[in-house]
Design a protein around this nucleic acid. Sequence first.
DNA 1: TTGTAGGCGTTATCAG
DNA 2: CTGATAACGCCTACAA
Lengths: 334, 334
Amino acid sequence: MNIYDIASMAGVSIATVSRVLNGSEKVSEKTRARVMAVIEKEQYTPNLFARGLDQGTIHSVGIVVPDISDLYMSDCVSVLEKGLEKEGYSCILACSGYDQKSKVSSVQMLLDKMVDALILVGSTYAGKGGGPEETGYIRAAAGKIPVFIVNGIVDGPGIYCNICNDRQAVYEAASFLISHGRRNILFLTNSRSYSALQKLQGYKEGLIRHGIPVSEERILFPGDRIHAVRDYLLNTPLPAFDAVICAEDFLAVGAVKYAHARGIRIPEDLEIIGYNNSSLAISCEPELTSINSRVENLCTNTVDFLVRRLETDEPIPQAADFSGILTFRQTTLP
Amino acid sequence: MNIYDIASMAGVSIATVSRVLNGSEKVSEKTRARVMAVIEKEQYTPNLFARGLDQGTIHSVGIVVPDISDLYMSDCVSVLEKGLEKEGYSCILACSGYDQKSKVSSVQMLLDKMVDALILVGSTYAGKGGGPEETGYIRAAAGKIPVFIVNGIVDGPGIYCNICNDRQAVYEAASFLISHGRRNILFLTNSRSYSALQKLQGYKEGLIRHGIPVSEERILFPGDRIHAVRDYLLNTPLPAFDAVICAEDFLAVGAVKYAHARGIRIPEDLEIIGYNNSSLAISCEPELTSINSRVENLCTNTVDFLVRRLETDEPIPQAADFSGILTFRQTTLP
DNA sequence: TTGTAGGCGTTATCAG
DNA sequence: CTGATAACGCCTACAA
């Protein structure tokens, strides 16, 4: 069933059918009705590829995430997809993993799919300080279509970033802990991504600002899973500590389990702050104080940027940032 | 940059370029090399829409989930995407929500995108006992392209289902609890989907099989969030109980929090079993015994079915089922 | 207001 | 082994 069939059934030319399909004004009410009747009756939908061939787009955007089963990223994708669908774009999802090669090939794959824009979710796409060649593939992609990064920064023409000010958020978390007397604060992280480094920076600045020396032995990479984190803390010789700030909620859950194993009281003897305010934070016992990284805002704004970039001539900012919000629960003192 | 440009730069016809592009045998090594050189140099990629127009496909599949931020579904999508990408298909993601209207429109949207197949994730697509018209849109879609359902059953030509035998899994969970003396077992659920009803059925059969009467007042719908579940259990007059089986992990976490609030010992005074063996299960304290619903197997098998259906003539089963596995942790006695 | 015809970039069939 | 050429289905000047 194609436009020719509809045309002949309605006794008009394909041009007319095309016009009613695209809502052109220049069709008499009478013929429009007749054509519409046939279209509905036949449940006709125009062939997307033919249309795409002509117009160079089928209104799709590529979303790249390292791991969609990650709580943070699936939250992002959820918001992005809803927003984009509302704006008439479909989402092609690619899970790239964390290694450079597969990130590059995921982006290339999406480019070949002729998407109108690319959204990269997560600061892993901002590189790990490996120099500009690490993000070269992103700049190259941005030369062809606009690229939007959620929670990561890469600069270059055609690249637009929305980030949570992780440094500031962790700085405030550290200040909060210090304000009620904690001085031996551990920092747990699991990555050297842009975002992770910003958090670390916030931690360091928080200490320094309050006259506490930063000691490298309090900055830890305890592993990638809850139990690994717990065991690391149990088995590694560590300086004394009375608080922990974590770059991810699962790290904080690991710290909580460590405390349980050792019989340490939370929050009296040990305060713990997580990051992302995910469902882990409320599953945990006691429930985690955690930093809300504003996924909803970040992603909504990303969609907004994207639509404006693609459909208008307004210039849009290269970057926008949102501040994180400390959400208090039971692993910190009031 | 199109196939004509490449052809003239290489001094051949477009037919020859097309041949080397598609790996045809009938090209001399010499010209193939010459053409390839130009292609690489220009970084030429054929226009997907033109190809799609000719072949009727761009090798994409539509994945529909009610909510990608749900732990279970993002796990599924993760496995599906990886498998499909490996097979050369791209994934168009649609988040349909739970209401009938938007499910129908998500499916229609994907059909309009000319995907080669549809994968529906979650038993919500199997309807809620509202009769066959509830799943009519799925059967209609299956008339055009193959439809695969992960963890739900709809029957009809062109519909292929992969499910976890939820009924059996819960039956075994109930039997296990009964085997060490529990007789007052609550069942917590949050849905009337096919899967949820199967779980309920397994619960009932487990009791009956062991001579325990089923009482409707032990079958509860305590809400959609952890704290709501806890509060429901705290505030609702309930018959005495010494064990809880839950249709979702978050319900079990709610039950754990209820027990904490009441000072009830787990597992001595109350045993709790969750469902899906998600990350909530290990964040919780004590950690949840939970049923592993075999997401990995379900989804891998779905991809396998899909590829066989699309690329071979082998007949494939209308349905395959996997059995759930009880994963023991700290909310049950050994 | 409506219709005709050319073009979008590939693939595939047929001659050569 | 290679090259013309006709589809594929739609959109849109340009004509009528």
